[in-house]
Design a protein around this nucleic acid. Structure first.
Length: 497
RNA sequence: GGUCCUUUGGCCGAGUGGCUAGGCAGAGCUCUGCAAAAGCUCGUACAGCAGUUCGAAUCUGCUAGGGACCUCCA
């Protein structure tokens, strides 16, 4: 049995994963900013870390999974307009800020549920932790690493960098950062352009505002994660995850803030997922190339030929290692859809396979199945390589189909190996990869009706009454129900999802 | 401009220096009343150039293309 290795963005190499407290894992993942609808790009981290969460749990850990909701609103373009993202939208849509936040939070939860993502164990909101954030800022000021300026508070990057490794996570050189000449409004409040805001003075038109020792304002972007992670996971915790685009400045700044407050590096393993691209370019609002999740599920988008089931998206994402970019196209999604169907069809045949006792094992097949099944864990342990796990499953698909169709007798496998195959497939397909059926659970009534039709068709076929048998199959097809004759004389059916 | 990453067959994508990735699409065959599935077989891909090595998609250098971050960003 191998050990779990994860790629740590901080050290830029794979490291054996050892939690601070054996048997317990603290994991923090940067959650959504609920000022708008989630798009395909947002789906990747939440599915990626859902699998991480599931796998760590599978390994026997008790995982505290914290994923925040950013509902406090940040700058659209910092300094330039000084507009609070959420409050601006609120005016446009004539909604209370919190009403807007609620709407998009609900929508986010709905999408997460569709993806079969397990909810985090704690989902704290930024607005619910203003007190903690203010407390942390006060600590940083006390320690001498932040200064007040015009009702705002900034982190003193230059001073921090003199004794700490600012820039290590994101591969940034501090001298370059300090030399940046970028001219932004509001910069004159800072001592250095590299300094970042811990607290911002709120202009009168800001709807979201809180009292603080420095006046009325709102927290800077980075402090919420530091405050909430510290509160729920402690000064030092195991995993911090998020998209690669958050490396700088977000996570770099988090390290600085937390280190000053807690006197210890906050995170042991930084895990970052890569981007989803579209025509080779990152999907993002600024590129105007986003496909919202609702559009994906409905097919209502110029780039989409049809609606795609959330499970297809999940499968599509898991077919790629999380640290690679994943290029989106309608064609790629269609391929994923067909692939998932092939995998799932075989998977569903598995429970019905029964071993009839007397074994005539095929040593070669036996060994193949055992090694393929064992590889699931090896591959997951190698930095959560779900792409390889799925490839291995696809190698098992012909074996499962052949046994099911009696091309290979079930006795070619030993009873134990068949049981192992059934058990491990279920564990990895459902519990770890979190896949589930694309079709709705059918009612007992429908199942009864279908059984009746199948019986009639079987009789017709036995009597060579192909008019009747074809009529049943064709009319069902018109209703979106596919009826298939199987090798052993049985019939199976699927409803078009 | 700075820093870093990347370039695999028609498409998507794994790849630990030597052994078939896998999926989709395509071709042929088998099974089948027909259909759909399913099974079997097939394409011998690693941006280019040079180097290291007995041997490189995998290591090094150069060239070219693409991308990310440096600003809100998953």
């Amino acid at each position: 049995m191998s050990e779990l290795k994860v790629y740590n963005s901080y050290s830029r190499q794979k490291e054996v994963f050892t939690p601070v407290t054996p048997g317990h894992v603290g994991m923090y993942v940067c959650g959504p900013t609920v000022s708008g609808e989630s798009h395909l790009g947002h789906a990747r981290p939440y599915i990626t870390f859902d699998v991480v969460y599931r796998y760590l749990t599978h390994l026997g850990n008790k995982v505290r999974y914290v994923r925040n909701i950013t509902d406090a609103g940040h700058f659209e373009e910092e300094g330039r307009e000084a507009e609070d993202k959420i409050s601006k939208k609120a005016v446009l849509e004539k909604l209370e800020p919190m009403e807007l936040v609620q709407k998009y939070t609900n929508l986010f939860h709905w999408a997460m549920d569709k993806f079969n993502n397990i909810p985090p164990t704690i989902e704290p909101t930024a607005t619910g932790h203003i007190v903690e954030q203010i407390g942390m800022i006060e600590q940083i000021i006390e320690a001498g690493y932040a200064y007040e300026s015009n009702g705002s508070v900034y982190f003193d990057v230059k001073k921090y960098a003199a004794s700490h490794d600012y820039g290590k996570l994101s591969g940034r050189v501090i001298e370059d950062l300090l030399e940046t000449t970028r001219e932004l409004e509001g910069q004159e409040e800072k001592r250095d352009t590299a300094d970042f805001a811990l607290w911002k003075n709120a202009a009168p038109e800001h709807i979201m505002r809180w009292k603080s020792p420095w006046g009325v304002g709102f927290p800077g972007w980075h402090i919420e994660c530091s405050a909430m992670a510290t509160k729920y996971l402690g000064a030092q915790f195991d995993i911090h995850g998020g998209g690669m685009d958050l490396l700088f400045p977000h996570h770099e700044s988090e390290i600085a803030q937390s280190t000053i407050c807690n006197h210890v590096a906050p995170v042991r393993y930084w895990i970052h997922n890569n981007m989803i691209t579209i025509n080779g370019r990152k999907m993002g609002k600024s590129y105007n190339n986003v496909i919202k999740l609702t559009e994906l599920f409905s097919g209502d988008h110029p780039l989409l030929s049809k609606a795609f089931h959330p499970m297809v998206i999940r499968f599509f994402i898991l077919q790629t290692q999380y640290r690679s970019t994943l290029d989106f196209s309608n064609e790629a999604l269609q391929a994923a859809e067909k692939g998932l169907k092939r995998l799932w069809d075989a998977y569903e045949k598995l429970p019905a396979l029964k071993h009839e006792g007397a074994a005539a094992p095929d040593a070669e097949l036996e060994a193949k199945v055992i090694s393929l099944v064992a590889a699931f864990e090896e591959d997951m342990n190698d930095d959560f390589n779900t792409a390889k796990v799925l490839a291995g499953m696809f190698e098992l698909v012909p074996v499962i189909n052949s046994i099911s169709d009696n091309i290979i007798p079930v006795t070619a496998l030993s009873k134990e190996t068949l049981a192992l195959l059934q058990k491990q497939m279920k564990t990895y397909v459902e519990d770890i990869l979190g896949l589930k059926s694309v079709t709705e659970q059918d009612s007992h009534h429908l199942q009864g009706v279908m059984q009746l039709l199948i019986d009639i068709r079987k009789e017709a076929k036995a009597n060579k009454d192909f008019v009747t048998s074809d009529k049943i199959r064709n009319q069902l097809a018109a209703l979106g129900i596919t009826l298939k004759d199987e090798k052993g004389g049985g019939m199976s059916w699927t409803v078009e999802g």
